[in-house]
Amino acid sequence: MDDEASRILKGFFPNIDFTKEEERYFKSLWSIKTFDQYDLITEAGKIERCFYIVLDGVQAIYLLNERGEKVVLGFSYSGSPSGAFDSFIQQTPSKTFLEALKPSKLLAISRSDYDSIFKKHPRFYTWGHHFFQDILFGRLSREVELLTLTAEQRYVAFMQRCPDELKVIPQKYLASYLNMKPETFSRLRASVSY
């Protein structure tokens, strides 16, 4: 693992102090996986085998509606977690796809190694508590936005907080995430400043 990957990994677990030996072991549990643009990282119907931390690239998590269209639930990007968490935790077939929208490099840990770090280092439970709390608050906030804001307000709120690397992915993914038609997204992009 190079210095940059090591820095991102450490940044993801900010409050965990390791001895040198523990850190070496911890790092050894992670492997680097690379994906080309449009590769499917996780397929709906397969069990998610890994928990990922993104080193590079942008990924979309989506499911298919009855018409077979992609409905985007979220994105991951440099420094963020990625994967179909429900499938990973429950070890049941995923309902969602995870796709690399840009060439991607991810740090991956298997389910058994993920479990082992909690057993070996109980302080990971505190990390896990905060991690899943953040995920829950993020989803709640998104639900409120989807239910209460107008399309223009959703567009502005999203564009103000999203990192630059997300702004260059195909518009149809951003439009789907914001629950609007690509034409609406395009019109807002041309006419609304944020």
């Binding site: 709906a44 119907g45 077979g68 992609k70």
Partner: peptide, 18 residues
């Protein structure tokens, strides 16, 4: 009908699981 590879993959995985 619009055919997409993702739809095909999802249905194939369901069959393989079954």
């Amino acid at each position: 009908l619009l055919l997409t590879p993702e739809n095909h993959i999802q249905r194939l995985n369901a069959i393989l699981n079954k």
